[in-house]
Design a protein around this nucleic acid. Sequence first.
DNA 1: TAAATTAGTTTATTTTATAAACCAAATTAT
DNA 2: ATAATTTGGTTTATAAAATAAACTAATTTA
Lengths: 94, 94
Amino acid sequence: MFKPLDPLLHSELRLAIMSILVSSAEVDFRYLKEQTNATSGNLSVQIDKLNAAGYIEVTKTFKGKMPCTLCKITQKGLDAFEDYVKTLQDYIRL
Amino acid sequence: MFKPLDPLLHSELRLAIMSILVSSAEVDFRYLKEQTNATSGNLSVQIDKLNAAGYIEVTKTFKGKMPCTLCKITQKGLDAFEDYVKTLQDYIRL
DNA sequence: TAAATTAGTTTATTTTATAAACCAAATTAT
DNA sequence: ATAATTTGGTTTATAAAATAAACTAATTTA
């Protein structure tokens, strides 16, 4: 009945990050911070976890002289997100 | 964009419990344990939290000679669940 | 050139979930 | 009859997670 929910995605901030990434080609740290209202520390940690899991790809570049961390969802991340949503349906169907 | 998710509901086991309760008049501890595959300890703790929040009502009775803990969703719990689902939609809409 | 801002990372703290240990009564087996 | 097991839990301890606080390094602004 209730399949387990991917713990990597069942987290408010990581889910918000992934939600943004599924519908954007590539976004930077700053943008994610704005959109999620997360603290830099929290965002940094959660990005690392998603990256370590292979759900996103992180590229460190420079935008002018300022460092710029770019995030992009991977196919694995996309699949995981879709699975998570499907699984979640069983929990929230009224 | 991303409203906060009620932390009381954004928990795998508590969400499963609530999911069962929204579509049942009243269920007992045993049934919840079966359906969720949770350990007794975890279930007990999470039921307490939902009860403390006023999301469910817990009645301790006896079924024959054996103790029987009945759980029933409250109006407050129902509202919270619906709100949670609405909020979640913004996170998972592909 | 001193202060403040940007773009983060690292570490510490708090919170949460989960598991392990326990308890009392009931049932089953010897 | 009584010892072992099961049922239906609770309480306490541990593991994991989220979050916040502190810090770094470079940059821009006053």
